[in-house]
Nucleic acid binder design. Sequence first.
DNA 1: CACCATGTTCCTTG
DNA 2: CCAAGGAACATGGT
Length: 297
Amino acid sequence: MPELPEVEVLVRHLRPLLERKKIRDVIVFRPKVIRPISIRVLKRTLIGARFVGVSRRGKYLLFHLESVGKARPFLLLGHLGMTGRMYLLPATAPLPKHTSVALNLDQQNFVFEDTRFFGRLTLDLTIVEGLGPEPLSEDFTIEYLQQHLHRSAQPIKVKLLEQRLVAGVGNIYASEALFRAGISPRLAARRLRPDQIERLREAIRDVLEEAIACGSTVPLNYAGTGQRDGLFYFGRATGTPNYYTERLLVYDREGHPCPNCGSFIKRVVQASRSTYFCPKCQRASAEREPKRRRTSA
DNA sequence: CACCATGTTCCTTG
DNA sequence: CCAAGGAACATGGT
C-alpha cells in the first residue's frame, strides 16, 4: 500500500495506537528487511523502548522511540515496499504467513506484514537523507521544480518517480498528476513550459491532498483479513457503499473513456513501468526529444 | 504457462 | 565518468 497518501493515512492511524506503548520483544522473520542492522543490535536497541510519536518522510514511516535513561529519542524507519502493511494484532492472534518483523507490546503485536518482502524496518536512516522536498511543504516551489527539470531529457513521468526530485510520488500518482495537469507523460522534462511546471506542481499537491483526505474519511481495515486494507486508492466499488468510487481518473484504466473528453485512456511503458494517460487531453506538441543524431560520419 | 503488480537498488550498456 | 535501461528482489493474482 505504498505512496505518500497511503503512508500518511497509515501514520495518522498508527500514531494514537502506538504512542506510549513499550516494546517488550522483537521477532525478525526476514533479516533482509532490517539491513544493514543486525538482529542483535535491533533487539538491544528496541527492547524496552517506548513509542513517543510517528511521522512520515516521503514514503517512509518514522517511528520516534525513547528508551529509559536516554535523553534523546531515536528513530526507527519503515518502508512498505510494494505490499507492506503495518497493524496491531492481539498478542494471542497467530502472526500472518508473510510477517517480516513483529514487535511485541505486551497485549498486542505490532506486525509488519509484507508479501513480497521489498519493505524495510531498520535503524539505518541514511536512505532518507537523499530525499527531495515534501511535495506538500513550502519547499516544493515552482522555482525548485524549474531548476531541477530544465536540464533533463527524461520523460516527465519518469522524472516524477525520482525520490530525490520530490519525495513520495509513485507510479499511480505520477500518472494521475500529469493527467490533471494536462501534460503528456512522454514530454521531456526540459521541454515543460513555465505554465506547465506551475500546473504540474499544483496537480501533484492536489492529487496527494485529495487522496489523503479520501483515505482519512474512509474506514479501513489494516489488519487485512477483510477485503479493505490501506489501498483506498483502488476505487472500483463493487456493491460496496460509494466511498471508493472513481478515486483514480486514469491509472489502470486503459481503454476506459477519459473523464474529460471521452477518448480512450492509453497505457504505455516507460522505464519498465506502466503509464496511463489520455492521448487527447495530454497531447504534446513536441512529444519527445528528437533522437540525438550520430555525428560520426 | 504467460504476464502483470503501489518500489528501490544494483549492474550493464552506451 | 555519467545517464539510461533493465534485471533483480519474492510472491501472488488473473
